[in-house]
């Protein structure tokens, strides 16, 4: 047993971080706040870097890596606040043509378990829904994005400025089965895990931001990080992030339903609570549109609603206590 990252995993993580810092740095992030349309050029680059084809076999043009590596890449994306349906494109590469290399962008939504909306409707080519339409078996169905938009009520104004949302289409939108190759429970499990990985990345990023601010901001003639009340907020943030990290990494290795539920629950909590504490450590600055921390908080809220909300995961874990 050696739970630490291997050298290859460390290298992969560093490469993903570097690529995202270069192609989606702070300036791009802030520009996207004003105009959240996805950058197709960036998406193709992510495709070329293997973000989507990471787990496809090398013979099929993929990178041939596993779920732990996918978790590391998603963690980095979460750190960088990368917008867009990364998890969907990663999971559907090899299933939907053109997704693996970033040519086509697809959204994935769980119509059966919620939350009833999908992201980046104007940028996606297609919407893939997990549902059980009337008279058809439970499975994955595809709908062209334009038709999905047309068959839905007017879109909500998304709380996350980086993630435009649309309601899922009503029954009038056409649906074609995605094909037999889709294992729905597995798709759900992996979507939950990779979403948790993004939450983890966000949670550790807000620890760093809070600590960085606490070291430099001075009040009463001293860095605010020398005040114990601030120190303890930061320590609590680290404990949340590191506990979530153990759960997320372990779930990536075991792929067990229970561990994924635990990972999602703890990573959601870490992302949201850490973002809030990060606001607090930043004082008035933390409450501004200008500071990035609200973007972490809002994305954290959004992800917490997707692929297993807290009460779903808690009930699942509770049921397992009786089964085990």
């Amino acid at each position: 047993m050696d739970f630490r990252l291997t050298d290859d995993q460390e290298a992969l993580r560093a490469a993903a971080r570097e690529l995202l810092a270069g192609r989606f740095g702070r300036e791009r992030l802030r520009a996207a706040v004003g105009d959240p349309a996805l950058d197709r050029g960036l998406w193709r680059e992510l495709g070329a870097a293997g973000f989507f084809a990471l787990r496809l076999p090398e013979a099929a043009g993929g990178v041939g890596l596993g779920l732990p590596e996918a978790v590391l890449v998603c963690e980095e994306a979460g750190r960088a606040l990368l917008p867009g349906p990364l998890v969907a494109c990663h999971l559907l590469a090899g299933v939907v043509d053109g997704v693996a290399d970033g040519e086509r962008i697809v959204a994935l939504a769980d119509a059966a378990q919620g939350p009833g909306w999908w992201e980046h409707p104007d940028d996606c080519d297609e919407l893939i829904m997990l549902e059980e339409p009337q008279g058809k078996p439970c499975g994955a169905y595809r709908t062209p994005a334009a038709e999905a938009r047309a068959a839905a009520p007017p879109p909500p104004s998304s709380v996350d400025p980086l993630t435009p949302l649309a309601h899922l289409p009503g029954p009038s939108a056409p649906r074609t089965p995605l094909g037999a190759a889709v294992d729905v429970p597995r798709l759900r499990r992996e979507a939950a895990l990779l979403t948790a990985a993004q939450q983890l990345g966000s949670a550790s990023r807000t620890v760093e931001d809070a600590v960085g601010h606490a070291r430099t901001r001075e009040q009463f003639g001293a860095p605010i990080g020398s005040f114990q009340a601030v120190k303890h907020l930061c320590a609590g943030m680290l404990v949340r992030a590191e506990t979530a990290r153990s759960a997320v990494y372990a779930a990536a290795v075991t792929e067990s339903e229970q561990e994924v539920a635990a990972a999602k629950l703890l990573a959601d909590e870490a992302a949201v609570r850490n973002a809030r504490d990060c606001v607090q450590v930043h004082g008035g600055m933390g409450f501004t549109w200008e500071a990035d921390v609200h973007l972490h908080l809002k994305r954290g809220w959004l992800r917490a609603e997707s692929w297993g909300r807290a009460h779903v995961m808690e009930e699942r874990l509770a049921a397992e206590l009786l089964a085990g």
Binding site: D2, T243, A262, L265, L266, E314, E315
Partner: peptide, 29 residues
């Protein structure tokens, strides 16, 4: 349901603590 959810959350907590232990042991190695 509130009690079930509380126990479910504790299950996540102790699962993570066990994994955190393995993490720390790996570092100690």
């Amino acid at each position: 349901a509130a009690l079930r959810r509380r126990l479910g959350r504790l299950a996540a907590e102790f699962t993570a603590l066990w994994r955190l232990t393995q993490w720390n042991v790996s570092e100690a190695q």
